[in-house]
């Protein structure tokens, strides 16, 4: 928390037409930090990630990446500034091969380094190496999710936004995803992750945020979550 933030959102308000979906959200991510965003369906988690990515324009508020305001930037510019995106529903390109999907956004990171290469990712996901010639939509759900994560990493981001990456996957495939995310975090990539599996999130993330109807009602560590267990469970509908 002492490091200057990598990403900082202040007073974010987002509306879809008449519905006010994010209400004055303040959100911060330090370099290399892992943050979870929790909340029931429809509370604005996806909207928050999409706004940070530049895919949704906030009505008001400020977003800074590395100290630079990125409000009004195109998503492509934000991506090139070092934000990797793993969207809800995966967004694999079905008519590109696994390898084409993977190398799609290959580029050095904002710091000029290429830590993640095709070879590094094939090492990380041997299954994708085996299936490199298959079309994107021929993969299983778990493989597609690996591919989405790998595709985002190939741009060597300093921040990875991950939306419901384990949704709809079998337990084994989920474990794979969690292990991989842990490894990525261990390499110093900051991660903001939306997910439903509280225990896995506690293991992965240093900090947790709960969104209720577009407002942050809790912000704290895993210990904090445990300390306020009853409140947390009621807010998450557990």
């Amino acid at each position: 928390m002492n490091k200057p933030p990598l990403l900082e959102a202040l007073g974010l308000n987002v509306c879809y037409g008449a519905s006010h979906v994010l209400r004055g959200v303040d959100f911060r991510v330090a370099p290399g930090e892992t943050v979870s965003v929790l909340g029931r369906n429809g509370m604005g988690k996806t909207t928050l990630l999409r706004t940070l990515m530049g895919l949704v324009a906030p009505k008001s508020g400020e977003i800074r990446l590395g100290g630079v305001s990125i409000v009004g930037w195109r998503a492509s510019a934000i991506a090139r500034a070092g934000v990797g995106f793993v969207p809800e529903g995966r967004g694999i390109f079905p008519n590109l091969t696994v390898e084409e999907n993977l190398v799609f956004a290959a580029r050095p990171g904002a710091n000029g380094r290429r830590d993640w290469t095709r070879e590094a990712l094939f090492d990380l996901f041997p299954r994708l190496a085996e299936r490199r010639g298959a079309w994107g939509d021929q993969l299983s759900g778990g493989e597609q999710q690996m591919l989405t994560i790998g595709r985002a990493l190939m741009s060597n981001p300093s921040l990875l936004l991950v939306d419901e990456a384990t949704e709809g996957l079998a337990p084994l495939a989920r474990d794979d995803i969690w292990r991989t995310l842990g490894l990525i975090a261990g390499r110093g990539v900051a991660i903001v992750i939306v997910d439903k599996n509280l225990d896995d999130l506690k293991a992965l993330c240093r900090r947790h945020v709960i969104l209720v109807k577009g407002q942050i009602v809790f912000e704290g560590t895993a210990d904090g979550l445990v300390a306020q267990d009853e409140f947390v469970r009621s807010q998450l509908g557990l």
């Binding site: 990515m53 895919l55 195109r74 998503a75 492509s76 510019a77 991506a79 090139r80 995106f85 969207p87 967004g91 390109f93 079905p94 008519n95 590109l96 084409e100 799609f104 956004a105 580029r107 595709r151 985002a152 741009s155």
Partner: peptide, 22 residues
């Protein structure tokens, strides 16, 4: 061509991976 094929299935994702769709 890869960009074109990708944009045909998901133009928003192409943008989110760093390519200016304009």
């Amino acid at each position: 061509g890869r960009l074109v094929r990708a944009a045909e299935s998901n133009p928003e994702m192409v943008e989110a991976l760093g390519f200016d769709s304009r």
